[in-house]
Design a protein around this nucleic acid. Structure first.
Length: 197
DNA sequence: GTGACGATAATCT
DNA sequence: GATTATCGTCACA
């Protein structure tokens, strides 16, 4: 399998967000492969993007200014984690939020990690909602703050592999979910969705 | 299927 | 002390 390297991530953030659709996100958990194909992403930049953590440089967002290919994991609303990949050349802030994936390997483990409780009792419905949100992806893959700063281009625990080619016609670009900021920030089409996955 | 709401803690001012 | 790149649950359709 071909792993995605620094040259893949060290590009314009929106370009990387678009190119990540169809790529495989792999997590090694208890010696087993958990994976899925990325099907929803969002691009976040720096001083030109009011919705980005890197709009201002802080201790937390400093990693977005660093070299590409690193994991940026943060906790949101006190209970959920979000996984990002740092983009752009060193010194230029940027990251892509992994919002959703189509689960493939390690289904049983991921379902256990997501918890069997809840109203989704039908297997097909459970599968549909297994990894259809940024916090859900992290739950299923067992990603928390311990993985913040992981080098995704060399780590054995978390990385990307070349996946499936995605047709342009199967991609939608929309405004990002749940972001604040001025009109231009909210209007930008920096969320990318791969349909028919 | 959609929409409202509360939980909960790291991070920033 | 305020804010938050979300999720699960509940009500309703």
């Amino acid at each position: 399998m071909i792993r995605l390297g620094e040259s893949f991530f060290g590009r314009d953030t929106a370009t990387v967000a678009r190119a990540l659709l169809g790529q495989r996100l792999v997590r090694l958990w208890a010696g087993q492969r958990l994976s899925g194909l990325v099907c929803e992403t969002e691009a976040y930049r720096g001083a030109d993007d009011q919705a980005s953590h890197a709009y201002r440089r802080t201790q937390r967002s400093a990693i977005m200014y660093g070299p590409p290919g690193y994991a940026y994991v943060y906790i949101i609303y006190g209970r959920n984690y979000c996984l990002n990949v740092v983009t752009e050349a060193f010194g230029e802030p940027g990251a892509v939020l992994i919002r959703a994936m189509v689960p493939e390997e390690g289904l049983a483990v991921m379902e256990t990690r997501r918890g069997a409780s809840g109203s989704d009792k039908v297997a097909a419905v459970r599968l549909r909602h297994l990894t259809d949100g940024p916090g859900k992806v992290c739950q299923a893959l067992g990603i928390d703050l311990a993985l913040n700063g992981t080098e995704l281009c060399s780590s054995q625990d978390l990385f990307f592999e070349a996946g499936r080619a995605v047709a342009e016609a199967a991609i939608s670009a929309t405004p990002r979910i749940g972001v604040r900021g001025d009109e231009e920030t909210r209007r930008r089409l920096w969320r990318f969705v791969w349909h028919s996955a």
